[in-house]
Each structure stands twice: as structure tokens, then as C-alpha cells.
Amino acid sequence: MSVRQQMRTALCGVALTGIVLTTAQGLAVAAPAPGGGAKASPGAGAVAAAEDDAARSLARSLADTAWRAEVGRAAAGGGELGLKALAARSGARAAGPLAADVAAADRAVLAAKGLDAGTGGLLTVALAGDADPRRAPLVAVAPSDDGATAVTAYDTAGRRHTLDAAKAPDVPVYVVGVDGEKAVEAGMEVLERELAAAGVSTAEVPAAGTAARPAATATATATGYWTSRITSVRLEDDKETWIKGDAEIFSIVSGFGLDGKVRVDTVTHPYLDDAGTTYHPNQILVNWSQYKYNLADVVMMEDDGGTDYSALAKAMAAALLTIADLGAYIPLVDPVVDALPSSFWTDDADFVDAWYTLARETTGARDGAGGNGRFTLDRYWVQAL
């Protein structure tokens, strides 16, 4: 069965399989990295290769005990640290070469994700477990396969190790990754800008040649407008494995704009970190003053790190611009899902769930078509100032 056939099955009501989230990892026998360190496996993608390069460089730099202690202190507070900034502001001898390596890896990540150079560094490092200055740490990178049971890590000599996802090693482990929240925010700007340039109306930029807003609508929005607001949201599976940390979730809202052409708005959900947790964001999902009909569709996705937002925008535009307004609402979930390149079903932007034909009057709990997500919505009037 093809990926898209599988997705169709999910959208027809088969619940998506949940993943077991764990924070444990184990250590296997070390092996020298051939050629001074193996690259990411073929097909893993440019982002995975850049993460791997940065992880190996960081691991080797941690042979400097003074620098190792400095990194340990910085990471002890928990959370992700910007790897480029961490190395750049240090006076440690090992930090200088690392900063140059990380800068190169960051440039590769930005290019692979189709993001502007001005986005800044995206590579991060976080400590899994506790730092122990007496023990040489390992540095791991999230695997490109979400279903992987083993994780590659490097020691301070550049040797490669395999970590078992079910057993914790007895040494500190640093995890190199991508700042997903920052990447998604920048990616949404690229997505909307490039969709608009292709002729699809978006929230940030009206499409070229879009007709002026009708006078009646202008009058209505001068006093305010109706929205659909998320009062609670819950996911059974956030499509994120333990080593990758928090999920980075965003939604693509689509419908027909006031000009009768397909319109796309993006919504980020930075609070949606964990599966099995109910969040109460009171977040606006749909601004109905921007839509011709009182219906819209939502496709929710998760950025696994390798998403090329420029490629995503081009694929979506190519599919959506073929759809004409025939005087009745046409659901747009299927065209959005079909527009995704095949690579997006591996370790790029994962499909999370979809909501067909949300109405302006929709309130209360509404399950996604895949049975994986649930929104609770209310109608909310935004008063003009």
C-alpha cells in the first residue's frame, strides 16, 4: 500500500498508531568511525548530515576538559542551547574551531530548509540526564527514522557508538538538534510569502492581482470579526520520538478567500509539546472575515527537522491553484495532503491529523479525521479598536 493510500485509510477513520515516548537510552560497543567519522546514511538528508557533522565536532571539542565543564554548566539548567552562540562567546581553546564548524553546519541547515540566511543559527544542544565533569560525555543526534530503535553518538575521540533507545547509558549524553520552534516560525513566513508569490492568498501577503475587499466586508471588519478559537487541544501521537524532544506542531488552514480563490493561513502551536496532554491555549484558528464561505479545512503537521518550506510552498501552490470556486464549498484537505512530496512522509513534516469542513458555527469538541487529534472550539468575536 502506498503512503498516500495509507493516509487515505487513516483519514477514513483508522486511528494513527501511538508511539511509546521514553527518555531511556543504552550504550553499545564503540567502533571507530571510518575515514575519521561516518557521514549520515545515504538519503538521510542535508539537515541530518549537518546535525551529524555538528555532533561529531562538538564531541571532539569536549576532549578539552575546561570547555567540557563550561558546556556542562550551561546545559545544567535544562532546555536547548543555541550551539553557535554557545561556542562563539566562549574563550576556551576548543570553542573556536567548533564555532566555525557549527556556522558551516547552520548554513547547510538553513539552505536545506529553504529558510532565509537572516533566520540565524538553528542548531541546538541539550543535555539528556545529568552532566558529570568526571566522565567524558557522548554527543548524539536524533535519527532520521522516527521508528529507529538505536541512536548514533560520538565520543571525544570521534568514535561512533550505538545507543539503545530503551536503556540509559552510564555517561552524560548531549543531543544536537534543530531549534524547531524557531524553524517553524521562520518557515511559516517563507510558506506564506512563497504561496502569495505563486498566486495563493495568505494572511501576511495578498496574492498578486487579488481584488480589493468588498465594501460590505470592509464595513463588517471595521467593527470586528468572528473567529473560531481553540479552547483546548489534545494529540494522542505528536509524531515525535524521545530524543528529538518537544514536538513542533503547525496547522495549515485553507478555504476560499473573498476573491473566490483558494486561501491558505498558517497557525503555529508552540505549546503543543507532548502527546497525551490536554492544552488550553485560547488560540484563534480561523479568522472568518478572510473567507468567502463559512467553511474551512485544517491539516495539522509536525516539523521533524528536515522540512524544506520553500519546496512545500511550491508543491501546495501547484495543487491548490488548479481548484476553482464553482459556487459551493470544496473541501481542500485532500489537495493539501496530495501536494506533499513523498519525502514529507519520512522524516520531514509529518502528517498529524486533519479536520474537514469546520464551520463558522462549529463549537465544542471535534475529533480529527484520523482519530489522532481533538480540538474544542468556540466562536469568538474580535472587537476592532
Rank of each mutant, 00 (worst) to 15 (best):
Y279W: 05
A324F: 01
E204V: 11
V173F: 06
L81C: 02
L83I: 07
R8Y: 07
D237T: 02
R234M: 11
D303M: 12
T362S: 15
M1D: 05
W226S: 13
V29H: 01
L195F: 04
Y154C: 04
A317I: 07
G224S: 11
G199D: 06
V382E: 02
T22S: 14
S289L: 08
T322E: 13
T322V: 01
T278P: 02
A117Y: 04
A142D: 13
D303A: 10
G327K: 03
A212D: 08
A28M: 07
G36V: 00
V264K: 03
L123M: 12
G18W: 08
D238W: 06
T156Q: 01
G26R: 02
G255P: 13
G209C: 06
M7E: 14
A74M: 04
A128M: 12
V352F: 10
A339W: 08
P335M: 00
D238F: 09
D259F: 00
T357G: 01
A150R: 15
L27S: 01
L127D: 05
G118I: 07
D274Y: 07
A63M: 11
V333F: 09
Y225W: 10
R374A: 10
F344W: 09
A59N: 05
R107P: 03
Y154F: 15
A59D: 03
T307L: 02
A216W: 10
A44V: 01
G158M: 00
V333T: 13
L16K: 11
G370W: 08
G245N: 13
W288S: 00
A126I: 11
D334S: 07
T162P: 03
H269Q: 11
R234W: 10
E185R: 15
A95G: 03
L195M: 10
T277Q: 12
D52F: 03
P341I: 09
T219R: 15
Y174T: 03
F250H: 13
P97F: 07
V178H: 05
L340T: 06
W242E: 12
D101I: 07
V205L: 06
G276P: 04
V102P: 02
I230T: 05
G158T: 05
G370L: 09
A317F: 00
V20N: 06
T307M: 04
S144I: 07
